[in-house]
Design a protein around this nucleic acid. Structure first.
Length: 155
DNA sequence: GCCAACGTTGGC
DNA sequence: GCCAACGTTGGC
């Protein structure tokens, strides 16, 4: 069982969009390391849904893998901004799992607050200039972050 | 297989 | 909008 964090710009796709739609294909990732993480995700694994390029940036909720990675359809679509002319149906390059909405936090955990927590030492997200849009999170960090989100929502 | 140029990411 | 860091591309 692994734990994850995936980034999305809420102007493009937010936790509220996922709440409304129920599930979505996590398509459009075009980085090999992130792709490898997406391919290793198993049904039932949880992801933090992180809002990037917004004020404030932070962890906005939770999603869950509901089906394992399949070829990302946007790579074959010439009208998509994620079209990859080097990909073919027989030899796809990009893969994406389907994820389901679990919850939207009442209190979005701001990145700024996370950076003040020494307990989060080693969290990929907080490493300087970490850019990966899909990252593993340790179970310990996942539980810690989840309980902080809950506690802050009560305040 | 090196490496310079280029494009992208993403916090600020 | 800036810009540092990083990944990718492609000529050699």
């Amino acid at each position: 069982m692994a734990w994850w964090l995936a980034k999305s710009e809420p102007d493009v796709y937010s936790i509220e969009d996922l709440k409304r739609e129920g599930t979505t294909l996590w398509s459009g990732v075009r980085n090999y390391q992130a792709r490898n993480y997406l391919r290793s995700m198993k049904v039932g694994e949880k992801l933090f849904f992180y809002h990037s390029v917004v004020n404030p940036v932070g962890i906005a909720g939770i999603a869950e893998v509901c089906s394992i990675a399949e070829p990302d359809p946007t790579q074959f679509d010439p009208t998509s901004e994620y079209f990859d002319p080097r990909a073919t149906v027989d030899a796809p390059r990009w893969f994406c799992p389907r994820v389901a909405f679990v919850e939207a936090f009442d209190y979005v955990l701001p990145r700024k607050e996370l950076m003040e927590r020494p307990e989060l030492e080693g969290l990929e997200l907080l490493k300087p200039r970490s850019r990966l849009s899909v990252q593993p999170v340790s179970e310990e960090h996942f539980r810690l972050l989840y309980s902080w989100a809950k506690d802050r929502a009560k305040q």
